[in-house]
């Protein structure tokens, strides 16, 4: 199935979840609940878009959760140390981008496997964040409300629905990423090298540079996500902030049509994938399903999605085969 088909499929799944949850518990459609879901979708969508880029090149970034944790820890620490808000934000994003560049260079220059490099990153950044802060919870001490409204604010309303600020950030990031991946020369190079890095190299595509770019984007968006998560919750625990978020991000990217073999991906699909993950979580809460089951249910839905994808593909194949068989029996 092509990417467009997958995006349609994930959209259908999203509609089903909305209808089922909404009909079983009308509170789902309450403005407060919808605002909450879209706000969380936006935060995880940003991580998912980042995760999509290494996946498109045929790699993977497992360090996203740890970069979220490090960035979320670093921001309040810098503010506490007296940095101005813009300087602190820039610094955090710079650290994130540098980590991504480091991953990319390890992969391209040293020839290490993306899985290994980013797994080590996951462990190292978590440890660094905890040591640096002495494992102490970091917070904003009741200050920086203006800054925090980046994550918690509701700048304007559509009817009863107060639009969460992160949704606007997601839209900007998504638009830029979609334009980048789908329409820009660099995006086409990324897709080409995901399909066949050797052929891309022979055709003059700067394969190494583009691979580094993919990991920089991933870590940069993880960093942005970390900033927003920190501003959202207000108090950051270095040991747990962002744990497993790389898996949410990768799941959103894969649900949204990115092939782990590389060369395929859709930013719209990734955003829909992130929305499905958050809606599932929301449904679990609203339908009174024990929240301990969250991972099991998310995993189950992912598995069902993969099975449905494969089944539809086989069904289409079988139908063609049957048509041929019918044509055969007609001729004899």
């Amino acid at each position: 199935m092509n990417v467009r088909g997958k995006v349609l499929g994930i959209f259908a799944l999203l509609v089903v979840i909305v209808i089922v949850t909404g009909s079983l518990n009308p509170r789902f459609f309450g403005a407060g609940n919808l605002e909450n879901v879209t706000q969380r979708t936006a935060l995880f969508g940003i991580l998912g878009i980042g995760a999509a880029f290494p996946i498109v090149t045929g790699g993977i970034d497992l360090s996203i959760g740890a970069v979220v944790g490090l960035s979320a820890t670093l921001l309040p620490w810098l503010l506490d140390a007296g940095w101005s808000a813009p300087a602190a934000l820039l610094m955090v994003l710079l650290v994130g981008a540098s980590l991504g560049a480091l991953h990319g260079l390890c992969i391209t220059r040293l020839g290490l496997q993306p899985f290994v490099v980013t797994l080590c990153g996951l462990l190292i950044y978590r440890g660094v964040a905890r040591q640096w802060t002495g494992d102490q919870t970091q917070g904003f001490s009741g200050l920086h409300d203006g800054l925090r409204s980046l994550a918690t604010g509701r700048p304007f309303s559509i009817g009863a629905f107060d639009v969460p600020a992160p949704l606007l950030i997601l839209l900007v990031v998504g638009l830029l990423a979609g334009l980048f991946l789908g329409r820009s020369v660099w995006g086409r190079w990324l897709l080409a090298l995901g399909r066949n890095p050797t052929a891309a190299h022979y055709a003059g595509v700067p394969v190494n540079r583009m691979t580094v770019v993919a990991y920089v984007i991933s870590s940069l968006l993880a960093s942005l996500g970390g900033i927003l998560f920190a501003l959202d919750v207000g108090s950051v625990q270095p040991a747990s902030m962002g744990n497993f978020y790389e898996l949410y991000a990768i799941a959103a990217a894969v649900l949204g049509g990115c092939s782990l073999r590389g060369g395929e991906g859709s930013i719209l699909g990734v955003i829909l994938g992130a929305a499905v993950m958050r809606l599932l979580y929301n449904s679990i809460v609203l339908l009174g399903i024990p929240s301990q089951l969250e991972f099991a249910i998310v995993g189950g839905v992912l598995l069902l999605g993969a099975i449905a994808d494969e089944t539809v593909r086989r069904f289409a194949q079988n139908r063609r085969a049957k048509e041929r068989a019918r044509a055969r029996s007609d001729t004899t």
Binding site: L179, V185, W186, G187, R195, N196, G263
Partner: peptide, 25 residues
């Protein structure tokens, strides 16, 4: 070749940069 990509994308691969409009293809 990029075997899974269309003929168009394969033909354009080495000249995307020359025929760009700003950063876009």
């Amino acid at each position: 070749l990029l075997l899974d990509e269309p003929v168009r994308a394969n033909l354009a691969l080495a000249t995307l940069e020359r025929r760009r409009r700003g950063p876009l293809v």
